[in-house]
Computed example of a mutant assay.
Amino acid sequence: MPATHFDRFLAESVTPQRDSGTGLGRDGLYGLYTSWCLINNVEPEEPASLWKALKKHGIAAEHNNLNMTGPAAADYIISSAPDLV
């Protein structure tokens, strides 16, 4: 099965947490995804499509153990808190 842009997003933008915790919630995951799409010139799909893709990978949209990583994480953080810059 060919890789989808969701596969690339997961490979490039999330990593498992080392410590147990709540991980990213729906807002954080979708915000990170839209930042990744912007950086990669990919048209973002609706949130339901992302949740479906995550489920195929065994990842829950809520209560996962994912952290942000990579350029999309930096973009999302800066976009979310422009006063920090």
Score class of each variant (00 low, 15 high):
80 S>Y: 04
51 W>D: 04
78 I>Y: 08
4 T>G: 04
69 T>N: 11
63 H>S: 12
81 A>G: 10
2 P>Q: 13
6 F>C: 06
41 N>W: 06
25 G>K: 00
54 L>G: 03
35 S>T: 03
71 P>T: 09
29 L>P: 03
58 G>Q: 01
84 L>H: 11
4 T>R: 13
37 C>A: 05
6 F>M: 04
36 W>N: 01
60 A>E: 13
22 T>V: 13
30 Y>L: 09
34 T>A: 02
70 G>N: 01
53 A>D: 04
70 G>E: 02
72 A>N: 01
42 V>L: 04
57 H>Q: 11
25 G>H: 05
61 A>S: 07
60 A>D: 10
2 P>A: 13
26 R>D: 10
83 D>N: 15
66 L>V: 05
52 K>R: 09
71 P>V: 11
55 K>T: 13
44 P>G: 03
25 G>C: 06
32 L>S: 00
81 A>V: 14
10 L>E: 03
57 H>L: 07
62 E>W: 06
65 N>K: 09
12 E>H: 08
10 L>R: 01
51 W>G: 03
15 T>Q: 15
48 A>R: 09
59 I>E: 06
23 G>Y: 06
38 L>Q: 10
80 S>T: 09
36 W>K: 00
48 A>C: 07
24 L>Y: 02
46 E>C: 07
44 P>E: 00
44 P>T: 05
76 Y>E: 07
45 E>N: 07
82 P>S: 07
68 M>R: 11
61 A>T: 06
81 A>N: 15
16 P>H: 13
40 N>A: 07
48 A>W: 08
29 L>A: 00
57 H>N: 11
26 R>W: 00
73 A>T: 05
83 D>A: 15
58 G>S: 06
38 L>E: 12
77 I>M: 10
7 D>R: 12
68 M>A: 14
